[in-house]
Design a protein around this nucleic acid. Structure first.
Lengths: 159, 159
DNA sequence: ATAAAACCTCAACCCAAGTTGAGGTCAAGC
DNA sequence: GCTTGACCTCAACTTGGGTTGAGGTTTTAT
């Protein structure tokens, strides 16, 4: 630690520590076009403090299972260095909000299904939604679709 | 399709089609000890119909981002071939239910945070929870922890 | 002035979760 | 009795998301 005043630029180590990531991950994200840095005369990376927000968003989104490619796409709406303006950010955020809501709904449906299973001894084939593929799914070929409810079937190749 | 009466044993192709998976995935799951089959005199696999439930559970859990290793662990509580009894199943299910609740809570926290961002123009560093790592996280070294709220810090090696 | 810590690039490796393909066998219909 | 499709094994490949290590440079602290 060299000082307590907020530095205007972050070294890789600082950025990594503050984002809770490894330096190699920062390199990786940069190669993948998710973040941006500039160099010192001695060729070392420096990051704008704004990178921390990007990293926060990246980490968070990843945590949700959103692949980096998709994160990059959403983030590409924001200028790589400039602080994003309100509109841009709002667009990204509301896009993700929808995504999030969908995921929440899906998990909630599943949890409810699981609740049913726990409570009712529904192993009797006819009621348990987790058991159901057995009886119903043969009709359209995909299993466990009760939890998808609107997702694309994703034909896995064989039949 | 050879007949409409429910067969007692499923061929790989049937099982795959009804579970919405590929045959190669079934092989893979079997190698990994998640499912079980027996062989015909001619060395071809046959699956008990109960495998469909297992596959449903596997697929569903995977959908939640639960890694196969963990799924295997939970499923190992169930006899590989016998229909699981109520208690066993309830144990597994309620375990997962908790997992699910946690994930839902996390996603919901994130969505709310995002909502705040959209509504309030909180790009001003001081309020936005997605922006916050910048200001707060330096205090304990991990970023974006507002959304973790209880997760382990997971020191990534450097500093 | 020098030693240590942090940094650089590049290539190779790791894991998970499968898929793909080669080369061969089994089973069903005509 | 033969062709066709489903099946078998085994090894290699794929993608995503990084990590590790070698070999060399820059920056910082004393």
């Amino acid at each position: 630690m060299k000082s307590n005043i907020l530095p205007k630029a972050l070294t890789p180590g600082q950025a990594a520590a503050r984002a809770g990531l490894s330096v190699s991950a920062l390199h990786f994200y940069e190669r993948e076009g998710l973040i941006h840095s500039w160099r010192t005369p001695g060729n070392q990376r420096r990051y704008d403090r704004a990178v921390l927000r990007r990293l926060g968003v990246i980490k968070t989104a990843q945590n949700l299972g959103i692949p980096l490619a998709e994160i990059r796409e959403k983030l590409s709406a924001l200028h790589p260095e400039d602080p994003p303006n309100k509109e841009q950010w709002a667009d990204v955020a509301s896009d993700w909000r929808e995504d999030l809501s969908e995921r929440i709904a899906k998990l909630t449906r599943l949890r409810d299904a699981l609740d049913g299973c726990i409570g009712c001894g529904c192993l009797s084939v006819s009621k348990c939604p987790l058991y159901n593929p057995d009886d119903k799914a043969a009709q359209h070929g995909t299993g466990a679709c009760y939890v998808e409810s609107g997702g694309e079937p994703r034909d896995p190749g064989s039949a």
